[in-house]
Design a protein around this nucleic acid. Structure first.
Lengths: 121, 121
DNA sequence: CAATGTACCTTGTAATGCAAGGTATCTGTT
DNA sequence: AACAGATACCTTGCATTACAAGGTACATTG
């Protein structure tokens, strides 16, 4: 189920990380691994999408020990989109939470079970 | 983007609504419309999935003015799954929020922008 | 009868995760 | 030199789950 939860959030998370510091894709994978995971098969098409939207720009930097690194930087439009996405996310979370049942402890006497007629199919 | 955010949450939201009161599918659509939307094309395959998992049971009730209604009730396993999903959801929300940048007002001086080398591709 | 509302349902499509496969560049070892 | 390992990039096929659109069936009303 976690995979489905992630859908719709990873673009925003990547933009948020880039708002803190420019990164190359491979590094983003490890930076995100601290709290949630994104696979390499996901990050590259995702970065291509973000670039296609004009939310990130890129530049190449020689690596100290390996192939060059393609860094991504947030554009002004990227900042705007991130802010917009975060607002949408917070609203979405509030919506979902308004549907959920309170935790077990406090729900014992508060939940009203109702059914139009007893019995099963 | 909202559509993608919903993925992974609708099953849980439906289970949560059923925890409050049994419902038929068409009614669930309108009950959920209060805070988020789920289309009819979604609800029926979703209910079939929940039933396949043994999380809901069904029974038929004559409608006062129309075709019969197929009510869904949460099973014990459904209750357990709902609790488990809600825990996962809360953890997921915390994970995402830990990645996001604070709101604009307080972030003005706290965000440290870092890039390994200036310039664009 | 037709129109409308209710209730059920399926199907094709779009989008976005993941796993697995691949290429290229550097460093170290044999 | 060749090879192995790490780094960094990338693509492709697949699975999953939303949505829109299409459809059927039942009751009521005009």
């Amino acid at each position: 189920m976690k995979t489905q939860l992630k859908k719709g959030t990873l673009e925003m998370c990547v933009l948020a990380l880039l708002a803190r510091a420019d990164s190359y894709a491979y590094e983003l994978v490890s930076r995100l691994a601290d709290c949630m995971e994104i696979s390499e098969g996901t990050i590259y098409p995702l970065m291509r999408r973000l670039q296609g939207e004009g939310w990130v720009s890129t530049y190449l930097v020689e690596s100290p020990s390996g192939p060059s690194r393609k860094y991504y930087a947030l554009t002004e439009a990227g900042h705007d989109s991130l802010a917009s996405m975060q607002t949408e996310w917070q609203e979405f979370v509030a919506e979902v939470n308004s549907v959920l049942v309170p935790p077990q402890g406090s729900a014992a006497g508060a939940i009203k079970r109702d059914n139009p007629q007893g019995g099963n199919k």
